[in-house]
Amino acid sequence: MSAEAGKFDPMHQFTVEPVAKLFAVGGREVWLTTSALWMAAAAILLWLFMLGGMKRQLVPGRWQAAVEGFTGFISSMMSTNIGPEGRRYTPYVFSLFMFILFCNLLGLMPFAIGGMHPLTVTSHFTITGVLAILSFAIVLIVGFWRHGLHFFSLFVPHGTPWPMIPFIAPIEFVSFMVRPFSLGLRLFVAMTAGHVLLEVFANFIIQSSGAGAAIGLPVSIASLALMIGISALELLVAGIQAYVFALLTSLYINDAVNLH
């Protein structure tokens, strides 16, 4: 991949390869892509994982306990942040969290499906952005549906002195409108940066191996050690970013449900 034309390109790994053209809508072509394949793989893996938790035994086995650990994690997060009403939105936040988590983790795996090079779906802001806009849209719909125009009082924090409202409200409005961008960009940037870092260090090993054992060996060993550490860190980041996305979504939904 990066070795083609002898030039190293750490960004090449993010390229979405078209596999087969399916149809065209309004002049736009829809292709089966590597991105679609990895999303599908993540969804199928997630489905298999969840299937293990569907035994519904009174005393759970290991697998069921693991699945119930995830559902309990999200449902307790929702009830802490939103309250008893949060249960209604838990299916969405749970799907979001698990889908992002599985995409993140699958993107870190050093293998390919049927010759398709590994791709982290969540390193594309077209994906994270759409998910962020989806969460934001849910917040807007729930907010206006429950509170009507009263939802705009969200921009006036409780207890603001009257003279301060003209200054505070625009700031609150801007910070509210920035939410989908920060939500989508955070995940995209974290995934991209981590994978670039891994590829750069991997490239150090390949490049230095051409410079003889005296330089190549120490550089390779140091790079490998760093890569092991960064891989562990990236596993952590994969979980944390999925959690942050779900947590912020739950906090935004809380604003829409309870105002503040």
Partner: peptide, 24 residues
């Protein structure tokens, strides 16, 4: 031409399926 349409289409399809099958 195909990039954004494909990303959107597959995300909607797969995340929709995840939401319906797993979430709901």
């Amino acid at each position: 031409n195909w990039y954004f349409a494909s990303q959107l289409f597959w995300l909607a399809l797969i995340f929709g399926a995840v939401f319906v099958v797993i979430g709901l």
